[in-house]
Amino acid sequence: MLEAKLSEAALLKRLLDAVKELVSDANFECNEEGIQLQAMDNSHVALVSVKLYASGFKRYRCDRPLPLGVNLGSLTKVLKCAKDDDICTLKAGDDADILSLTYEAKSAYADRIAEYEMKLMDIDADQLGIPDTDYDASVTMPSSEFLRIVRDLSLLGESVRIEVSKEGIRFVSDGEAANGNILIKQNAEASGKKKGSIEMNSAVTLTFSLKYLVNFSKSSSLSKKVQLMMSNDVPLLVSYAFNQGHIRYYLAPKIGD
């Protein structure tokens, strides 16, 4: 069985927001290390991988590996019934038929305990083996900045070309009617406090579909920073780390004919 108590429902709400438009159903793989989810979007262009460490929960117990097949739309609805600061407990039996969610809040006049149950399903999804990669370029920047850049450029065109060079990282969009490019220089520092970093072994140029990057940017509510890992001709890794775990996205590049 699984019993996992989170100190705030907000974390799950944000995670669902960051995943639900990419995938509709996914297995939450629970084991003693924590809860993991890996799923590809329907077009097999993007993959999302979430990890919640057992240590990130107020209480965590999972006796044996348990895959929970979740319809993310249904879970989103059930989580809408939780207040952000409610204590949230997830429970499932070994048959993994039902996921129960308990929301506890202490208000001024009484303790409120709300219980919800949702049906689980069998999901037969391929798990991909993601090779360990030494990336040629690693860029860390404020997640709000990344959100702004991809949202702005998505107004102009479908794709963005990302160029990492000694100059810094440049995002270029060539739309039919307009184009734009945004350069973030290597030495971008504000009041002595480092906001980001650009590490590069060799120059990288890659092109990606902006609609996915806009989608990934929904994770900005989970972490103040985002890390972009890139090598030529391999999928981009977009990683958001937070106290209780991480969410990572992989996106296949567009390649010239």
Partner: peptide, 14 residues
């Protein structure tokens, strides 16, 4: 023209 690659061409099934 750019062609969108599939992730399956980079990552193998487990």
């Amino acid at each position: 023209k750019m062609k969108q690659k599939s992730l399956m061409s980079f990552f193998g099934k487990k």
